[in-house]
Design a protein around this nucleic acid. Structure first.
Length: 246
DNA sequence: CACCAGGCCGTGC
DNA sequence: GCACGGCATGGT
């Protein structure tokens, strides 16, 4: 249970609910409930979703050997991984994320599920597909309290076909294409590419990462975090947010 | 009352 | 190109 908390509710996905005795999410038209790593190793969808094909142990060794900050982060979050989320879900999730906090992002995410998704099991709603979310309007989004993000969501619905074109593109081209959607800048684009397309070269810079870089890595190039920049970023993000007491 | 949250846009220079 | 204020909302 606890080993999964940072992965599932730490800010890379907003699909998971803490139900006390397990984490649950509606994905792939099903309700998934997990308590520990063994649960997702058995199911084919979760096996892929939790990126089980990647050797995180080896990557962590390399990351932890870089410096004391990363070593400490790896000790605190020994099991951290990057989920392979659906691109569309990642797109809307990180549009919701701007100038917002994780708790409220999750709340808005769930409102969209209940308003426009469908009930997969009693009380469990899927995240709406582009065409399902297409039934919304600026007025309805306002009622759901998404704030200034309403018109960004509308534009993302209109341009959702873009997601089909991203996969084959080089990183910079993919980034540029995503940024043609209103409300998507460099940071949100990097989150969509990392969490929705598993582009490991991404390095999302948000307020937390900005602080951590300024304090512990002043003047350093992002090349420093090769060969696993995205994973380093994720470790630094968790480290910064949990303010590192060992 | 202030300030902040996994930022971005429009404007001005 | 870079700096700045505004932006909806809810929490502290």
């Amino acid at each position: 249970m606890e080993e999964l908390r940072e992965i599932l509710t730490g800010g890379q996905s907003f699909s998971w609910k803490d139900e006390g005795d397990c984490f649950s999410a509606v994905l792939n038209e099903k309700v998934y409930k997990v308590r520990c790593a063994e649960d997702f190793n058995a199911d084919p969808f979760l096996h892929e979703y939790f990126d089980y094909g990647f050797d995180y142990d080896e990557a962590r060794k390399i990351i932890a050997s870089k410096d004391e900050i990363l070593a400490s982060a790896v000790r605190q979050f020994p099991q951290l991984r990057i989920l392979r989320q659906d691109p569309w879900i990642a797109l809307i999730s990180f549009i919701l994320s701007q100038n917002n906090n994780i708790k409220r992002i999750t709340g808005l995410y769930n409102k969209l599920c209940e308003a426009y998704g469908h009930e997969v099991e009693k009380g469990y709603f899927s995240f709406p597909t582009p065409s399902e979310l297409g039934r919304t309007s600026i007025a309805e989004l306002k009622e759901l309290r998404v704030g200034f993000r309403d018109r960004y969501i509308m534009d993302a619905i209109e341009k959702s076909y873009i997601l089909d074109e991203i996969k084959t593109l080089a990183y910079e081209e993919a980034e540029a294409k995503l940024m043609t959607i209103k409300g998507i800048g460099k940071k949100v684009a990097s989150c969509v590419l990392l969490f929705g397309f598993h582009r490991f070269e991404a390095f999302p810079v948000d307020v937390w990462i900005r602080k951590v870089l300024a304090k512990y890595y002043p003047g350093k190039s992002l090349d420093y975090f090769e060969p696993y920049p995205a994973l380093c970023q994720q470790y630094l993000f968790s480290y910064a947010r949990n303010l590192s007491l060992e």
